[in-house]
Design a protein around this nucleic acid. Structure first.
Length: 603
RNA sequence: GCCCCCGUAGCUCAGGGGAUAGAGCACCGCCCUCCGGAGGCGGUGGCGUAGGUUCGAAUCCUACCGGGGGCACCA
């Protein structure tokens, strides 16, 4: 490849510019107005600007539309403009322009996608599993959505700083450590499990999770054990060496298990991205001091609190953040304030995305308000202010429509879900492709199964609650990742047969004088939107828009595939269609990649 | 009590104020002399209710109904 980057302006934006220009010429007072250009099923694009602004101008929409048609007459790249209905502008772009877009995008490594986030420094907080606890379906959303956003932002040129805010600190470690010390026979370490001393399939965290449950039971039943556990918490917080060592051991063992899940899911998170609650412990006293000194926090009832100026509690009093408890201890509110301060001051973020359950909405609202009052969000890296955003997602509901309760029975372990999906995929692949080697079969089943789980989660809108249904999640038909992967594999198959073994797109040199089949046109128009869609995904922090787009694009390809033979076409047509195949394959490949889903060449 | 989120087809979900509201699953009927049928084509079926803003509302506003969530010493 050339390595030369050539960002490409989408046809939609070109048309917007053209309509804007025409509008400014016809009606100077409307200069700068949104040209309201959308895709249309009656032409390539439509503009609704004549309808929208007619009233303001005291003009008839049809008349204004007519003037715009005239002004757009000789614009390069626009083949036809018609007034339709009460004043819609139906705009058709020239075939040559479509072929040119294809050519330009193929010539660029990044398919012409603009680096719209160049220079931005974005912290993304996601996943955040709890140490010594099993990762379950409730962790899927934050992990998958956060990872996809990290990929998209990175692709758009941002410097992305991933932060895995592990739940690695708190009173529960007192009872766990105490229990482990009193029961040296307990088997929970990675090495214990590998040596086969426990049931197969058990993981470190499930062992720890089990220990936690018995410790909890003993804590509730045995007053003396409860006292010893509380003493352990004090020892841990005071930095007692033996206690800390045990704690560190538990954290390390848990992280091994998390890494297995991340590896399996193809999530970018690495050990270096871990910055758990314990990290911020050292700064909690000074954060409280700083809050008090600034007058943002105050003493109340023996504790230190930040009273909200915006939100009221049930009793009509201000809602509060509890930054220091009456017993002198610190909780989650203080930790989150220290975390935010660190991300601004030390990580130099100019945007922070918290990919966290929607139930935390009030909490983050209070945290962000306090941070604003502290001036922590005042200055970003080249921006007026740091943007702190709670990227909230809906609750995972059970089959009964009730929320999955974290510790009530019936939670589905993430590893179990992945295994189910991969098994399901393996059965399908084995049936369809009996000649595959076992290794190849495993690889494809893994890619299809894991992809299905991720896509099922990513493809629904973020803020809504969603119903967890394992059967639907492992399903491989319809609007699933497998449909996209399959479309990609079919294209790769065509390219292989055409003798095009290169994975990198060559400069295509399409013949732009050839007429276009409607299915070719629809496909080029879809492919041309890729970069714009990525900007939308970024702006709204909504990966499901990318899913919708890729599904539509794969359908456009399938339609093309059904209607436009490639290999048997005459030479010029064949070359153009091969170029179209290359861009379609590359777009699906990149798009799936930004969702964190593999796009195998065969499946 | 107050605040936040959500009500779209039998089910699970898309729908950046625009023309005839779309997919998938399920169900019924078709399509392999043709680049991979994990596919394609056709059929059945819907915007919680009532107002308002607008030339135009699933989309914006208000009220109500229904579901979920949150509201100081747990994280």
């Amino acid at each position: 490849m050339t390595g030369v980057e050539q960002q490409v302006t989408s046809l939609a934006r070109q048309v917007e510019t053209a309509v804007s220009t025409a509008l400014g010429r016809v009606r100077p007072e409307l200069d700068g107005a949104d040209p309201l250009v959308r895709r249309s099923d009656r032409a390539d694009f439509q503009s609704n600007v004549a309808l929208a602004s007619a009233k303001r101008l005291k003009a008839r929409p049809a008349e204004l539309a007519g003037q715009l048609v005239e002004a757009l007459q000789d614009v390069d790249g626009i083949a036809d403009v018609e007034v339709s209905g009460p004043g819609f502008l139906n705009i058709t772009v020239a075939d040559q322009g479509l072929w040119r877009q294809l050519d330009r995008r193929l010539a660029d490594d990044r398919l012409g996608v603009e680096r719209s986030e160049q220079g931005a420094r974005v912290v993304i907080d996601y996943s955040a599993p709890n140490i010594a606890k099993e990762m379950h379906v409730g962790h899927l959303r934050t992990t998958i959505i956060g990872d996809s956003l990290a990929r998209v932002l990175g692709h758009l040129g941002a410097t992305v700083i991933r932060q895995n805010h592990l739940g690695d600190w708190g009173t529960q470690f007192g009872m766990l450590i105490q229990y482990i010390d009193e029961h040296p026979e307990a088997r929970w370490r990675h090495s214990d499990l590998e040596s086969g001393e426990v049931e197969p399939g058990a993981s470190t965290v499930s062992a720890l999770d089990g220990l936690y449950r018995v410790a909890r039971a003993e804590f509730d039943a045995d007053e003396a054990f409860a006292d010893r556990s509380r003493a352990r918490v004090v020892a841990l917080q005071a930095g007692d060496e033996a206690t800390l060592a045990r704690w560190r051991e538990i954290v390390d063992e848990s992280e091994i298990a998390f890494r297995q899940i991340y590896g399996r899911l193809g999530v970018l998170l690495e050990p270096g991205d871990s910055a758990g609650e314990s990290v911020y412990n050292q700064w909690l006293p000074e954060v409280v001091e700083e809050l008090l000194a600034a007058g943002v926090a105050k003493h109340s009832d023996g504790a230190v609190v930040v009273e909200s100026e915006e939100v009221k509690a049930p009793d009509g009093q201000p809602a509060v953040l509890m930054v220091q408890k009456r017993d002198g201890g610190y909780g989650y509110d203080t930790t989150d304030l220290a975390t935010l301060r660190y991300r601004v001051r030390d990580l130099k973020a100019d945007r922070i995305l918290y990919v966290v359950d929607a139930r935390q909405a009030l909490h983050f609202r209070l945290i962000f308000e306090a941070a604003r009052r502290m001036g922590w969000l005042a200055r970003g890296n080249g921006h007026d202010s740091v943007e702190a955003v709670h990227v909230a997602f809906g609750t995972v509901l059970g089959p009964d429509g009730r929320p999955f309760k974290t510790r009530a029975g019936g939670t589905v372990r993430l590893m179990h879900l992945i295994d189910e999906a991969v098994d399901s995929a393996r059965r399908t692949v084995a049936e369809r492709e009996p000649d595959l080697s076992p290794a190849e079969l495993d690889r494809i089943a893994e890619q299809a199964g894991v992809g299905a789980v991720k896509y099922a989660d990513l493809s629904t809108s973020r803020v809504k609650d969603y119903t967890f249904d394992i059967a639907r999640m492992v399903s491989l038909t319809g609007n699933t990742s497998v449909y996209l992967q399959y479309a990609h594999a079919r294209i790769r198959s065509i390219l292989r047969k055409a003798g095009d073994s290169t994975t990198a797109p060559d400069p295509a040199q399409v013949d732009s004088t050839l007429p276009m089949h409607p299915a070719e046109r629809a496909l080029v128009l879809a492919l041309d939107e890729f970069g714009d869609v990525l900007r939308d995904v970024d702006a709204a922090s909504e990966p499901h828009r990318l899913c919708t787009y890729l599904f539509e694009t794969a359908k456009a390809f399938t339609d093309f595939y059904e209607n436009c033979p490639v290999l048997s076409a005459e030479e010029g047509v064949r070359a153009n269609r091969l170029a179209l195949c290359r861009l379609a394959a590359a777009t699906l490949h990149d798009g799936l990649g930004l969702l964190g889903i593999a796009a195998p060449d065969r499946m």
